[in-house]
Structure formats: structure tokens, C-alpha cells
Design a protein around this nucleic acid. Structure first.
Length: 476
RNA sequence: GGCCCCGUCGUCUAGUGGCCUAGGACGCCGCCCUCUCAAGGCGGAAGCGGCGGUUCGAACCCGCUCGGGGCUGCCA
């Protein structure tokens, strides 16, 4: 048995969305599970839509996710001589032929077919043109595509690991293009040839490609290749509208999740659970743990809908699993102040530690820590928190009482406890504490108050409380 | 239109003929804990698309039907 080789072969026509990332992940997981090789191959046969920026972006995202590849990236367009070579062999052997129909002619005939209520598709016009006609076309300077001659009868059947036997009548598949008039290869050709040349043993990809498998397999056979890779077609990840996620429809860029403060661990974990699951119900896992248990044979058949709510919950869980020093470094890029000199590392570390227990995203943590790194003058109380503060009974008295207490108490977590003030004025801490959170941290909900007060320092805390009193009287 | 694939709580899933009056997770609701928000604990509502078979017995097997998705391109 030859060594397992899988490949992730994205088209570099845009950013990597969750569907593509999941496909990459499943390939990576399987390679790691069996100790095989994970190949990255960029399928840029659509020259018009492929960009080098996209190639770079895909690599960046894969690296960020931790999906390291063992070979590549191979750039498919650099191999087009080989693709053309195979195409001419197929023409020579009669498996393919030149088609001189222009795009316009094709479109016209398609229209007619549709008008007549016929199934639209290539009509085989150039299938068997004689040499004289061919010479005329060439003399006219007409360009030619190379088309694959699909069988007229019989069935194409292959075994898919997740779906079982997949079979289709050859008569429903029209002759398809292998080479454009300029000699550039089409996906089917390049994909088939490269999989053969790179000795790919397992093809793990989206179900949207299931119908193309028949064509690719036909090319392989025409090339004289007898064996075929193991196919595993994964269910699609659907967007909110219930449609296939694509760059053209409701796609979600992985980079957006990174920028929103999601951990790569979370994306990997969540994506693995879209189309695959464990029988014991364990959900929170590291990439390594998943790789140990993952098998393409266990991939689900039905499509899944992407659910951001669960992703957010899971991110919080992964944040809690991180060591605090690790988390601090992950949060750092999200805190603008951390980029400046004189930044207070000690307080930052303390604050991240406090936030770790309650945050769901890195951005969330950065926001919760922010009050420590703005001046008292710059502290902004968000609108809804301010409205709540204004609506609270006896806010001014509450704030003033806190000032009095904090001016002379011990500066410890126990000492700055404001509950006695609140209760002394006849309020329930649960109901009134938001006033202090808002005045000191800028939000009604945030890091634990006593710890925050100690971290901020007496001078700042009192200044903020007084400023809130002043702002309050100006409002009323 | 033709062909292909799919169908378990709102969502992700476990389940491969009896262990299922269908289990877990997110979300939701209630209670507890509590200085806010979370986290945590406890409890709850919520599902096998439908109809026929096969069988002593069906979420699991078969047929039909309905629903969803994909492909049908000189995109991948």
C-alpha cells in the first residue's frame, strides 16, 4: 500500500471562506491521522479570476489555522505544458477532439435548445468533422477548444467513502472542454493530470464537485491510468439562506473571524464538528485530539448550516483553556495602547487574567481592559450604560458615598469593596452596582470592580466618580 | 427541464432493527450562586418531513412522495 497523499486544491479567486477552510481541515486531519502527506496545490486554471494576492492570502490563513502542508504550494498554471501534452495524447488516441465552435455560436444554439424545451448542453457538432472541414476552419483562423469525448452509453460509477456508490448515465454528460483556444487547460484536465502525477491517493472535497468526478475519472482512464484515488465528498456548509457558501454568495472570510478575535483553535474545532462528530459527545478538542479520532469514513452525509452562536461560545471555552501568558500575547494586537511605549504590562496582565474567565473573543477582552489604558478625561461611558446610570435612583448620592469611602479605605480588594456604601443608602448591590461599573470602567458590565479599582489606582477612580457626578448634574 | 446528492430538537450532532417513551452540545426558558457581565450548578420546553411496505419489532431496511441542496460553463 502506497503512502497516503491528500491535497487541498483551492482556486485562488478570492479569500478563503469557511467551506474551503473546512475542506482544507478535513484533508489535513486525515493526513495527520494516517501519517500521510498533505499537499497544497493552487488550481489557478481560471487565469481571469486568479490572483497572486489570493494565493498568498490562502497560505496565510492556512498557516494561521495551523494547517501546515508538507508539499507545495504547487501552482497549477506552471504545469500547463504537461496538461497540453496529455490533451494532445487524448486527441491522438481519439478520446478527445478539436471543437471549432465559437462561444457565440454555442450560446446561440443553447438558446435554441432552451426555447425548444430541450436539455441545454453541447450538441456534439464538431465530434466527427472531416479533415476538409477542419482545414477550412483552420484556414479561416478559427480557434479550437479541445473537448473530451464522453461515452455515448453505459454508466459511470465510483465508490465514495461517505456516500457509497455514486452512479450516473453517461448519456447525460456532454462532451466537455479540456483546453481553451489559447491552450490553457480547464479544471477537469489539470485536476485529473495533477492528481495522477502527484500520486494523490485520497480526494477529500466538497459535495459540489461530486458530478465532476465522473469526468475526471474518465480522463484518468483515457490516460491509461487504471487505479483511482479514494473519494470522500463532504457535505456542504450552508449559509444563512440555506445555499452553498461561496465567494459569490454569503461567504464568510476566515480572516474576518481572526480580526473579530476568534482563536484558530476555535475555528478548527468548530469546523471539524461541521460534518463530523464523535460518538461519545466530546466536543471541545485540540487539533491533535481531533486528528487522532478523525476518519473520512465517519464524515456525515447531510449538509450543515454555519452557526455563529455556537462558534462564539466555543471561542470562550478555548480562551479559558489557554494559559494566561499565552492569552496575553493573543490579546496584545487588539489593544492599541499595548503598541505604545510606557505601556503598563503588569496591569495589562492582571486585567487579561480577570477577563479570561468571562470573555468570548479577544476583542471582547481588549474592550474590557480598555478603561485601564485611557486617561480619566478620555473615558467614554457607552450610551446604554449611561442611560441606565441616569435612570438609577440616587445615583449622585451613590457616587459621592463611594468617593468618601475610597478616599480613606485600605487600597486592597477587600478595602475597596463598595457594598457597604450601597447598602448604607438602602440599595441592593445587584441593582445599583452598575453605576460604579459605568463610571469607572465605562460599561455597566465589565471586569470585577474591586480588582479593577485597585488596578486603576485611587486618584483615577476618584476622578472618574467625580466626573460622573459632574456630568450627571449637567445632564439633569 | 435533465442528472446527482441529502432529509433526527431552531442549529451542530449521537444513533447502522429491540439498550430510543431518541442521547449530547449551542441557543432559549426557569431556579441557584453572585459586586456587573460571564463562568458554574440544577431543572425545563424543543426533533426522527409524510405515506405505504418488510419485520414479532423500525429513526435505522425497501418503495413512493414532499422538501432542501448541488451540478448541468471556454468557473472551480
Amino acid at each position: 500500500m502506497s503512502k497516503t497523499r491528500v491535497r487541498f486544491s483551492p482556486a485562488p479567486t478570492g479569500y478563503l471562506h469557511v467551506g474551503g477552510a473546512r475542506t482544507a481541515l478535513f484533508n489535513w486531519l486525515y493526513a495527520r491521522h494516517v501519517g500521510g502527506t498533505f499537499v497544497l496545490r493552487v488550481e489557478d486554471t481560471d487565469v481571469g479570476r486568479s490572483t497572486t494576492e489570493s494565493v498568498e492570502q490562502i497560505q496565510n490563513v492556512l498557516s494561521w489555522l495551523g494547517l501546515n502542508w508538507d508539499e507545495g504550494p504547487y501552482i497549477q498554471s506552471q504545469n500547463s505544458n504537461r496538461h497540453r501534452e496529455v490533451a494532445s495524447q487524448l486527441v491522438a488516441s481519439g478520446h478527445a477532439y478539436e471543437c471549432f465552435c465559437t462561444k457565440e455560436e454555442l450560446d446561440q444554439r443553447l438558446e435554441i435548445q432552451r426555447g425548444a424545451g430541450l436539455a441545454p448542453g453541447y450538441d456534439g457538432q464538431c465530434r466527427d468533422i472531416d479533415e476538409a472541414t477542419r482545414a477550412t476552419f483552420v484556414a479561416e483562423g478559427r480557434g479550437a477548444t479541445v473537448r473530451f469525448r464522453t461515452p455515448d452509453s453505459g454508466r459511470s460509477t465510483f465508490i465514495d467513502v461517505v456516500r457509497g456508490e455514486v452512479s450516473v448515465e453517461w448519456s447525460t454528460i456532454r462532451d466537455f472542454v479540456l483546453l481553451r483556444p489559447d491552450g490553457s487547460p480547464i479544471f477537469y484536465l489539470a485536476n485529473a493530470v495533477d492528481d495522477v502525477d502527484m500520486a494523490i491517493t485520497h480526494v477529500v472535497r466538497g459535495e459540489d464537485l461530486i458530478d465532476t468526478t465522473h469526468r475526471v475519472l474518465a480522463i484518468r482512464h483515457a490516460m491509461g491510468v487504471d487505479d483511482q484515488p479514494v473519494y470522500a465528498h463532504c457535505p456542504l456548509i450552508l449559509g444563512p439562506g440555506g445555499h452553498k457558501l461561496s465567494k459569490r454568495y454569503g461567504a464568510v472570510n476566515i480572516e474576518d473571524f481572526r480580526d473579530a478575535g476568534y482563536l484558530p483553535e476555535t475555528l478548527v474545532n468548530y469546523l471539524a464538528l461541521l460534518g463530523w462528530g464523535t460518538s461519545d459527545g466530546v466536543e471541545l478538542m485540540s487539533a491533535i485530539q481531533i486528528a487522532e479520532r478523525f476518519d473520512i469514513a465517519d464524515i456525515n452525509r447531510s449538509s450543515a448550516t454555519f452557526d455563529g452562536t455556537k462558534l462564539e461560545w466555543m471561542n470562550g471555552e478555548h480562551i479559558r483553556m489557554l494559559s494566561t501568558p499565552d492569552l496575553i500575547e493573543r490579546v496584545r494586537p487588539f489593544v492599541a495602547a499595548a503598541q505604545t511605549k510606557g505601556f503598563d504590562e503588569i496591569r495589562f496582565a492582571e486585567a487579561v487574567g480577570l477577563a479570561q474567565a468571562r470573555a468570548t473573543t479577544l476583542v471582547h477582552i481588549a474592550n474590557q481592559c480598555e478603561f485601564l489604558f485611557v486617561t480619566d478625561e478620555d473615558l467614554a461611558i457607552d450610551d446604554s450604560s449611561w442611560e441606565r446610570l441616569v435612570a438609577q435612583d440616587g445615583t449622585a448620592a451613590l457616587l459621592e458615598s463611594a468617593v468618601q469611602h475610597l478616599e480613606r479605605c485600605d487600597w486592597t480588594v477587600e478595602g475597596v469593596d463598595l457594598r457597604p456604601c450601597v447598602e448604607g443608602l438602602g440599595h441592593k448591590p445587584r441593582k445599583a452596582m452598575h453605576v460604579f461599573y459605568s463610571a469607572i470602567e465605562g460599561h455597566a458590565a465589565g471586569l470585577p470592580l474591586w480588582e479593577s479599582i485597585v488596578l486603576l489606582g485611587r486618584e483615577s477612580v476618584i476622578a472618574r466618580l467625580k466626573s460622573a457626578v459632574a456630568k450627571l448634574s449637567a445632564t439633569v
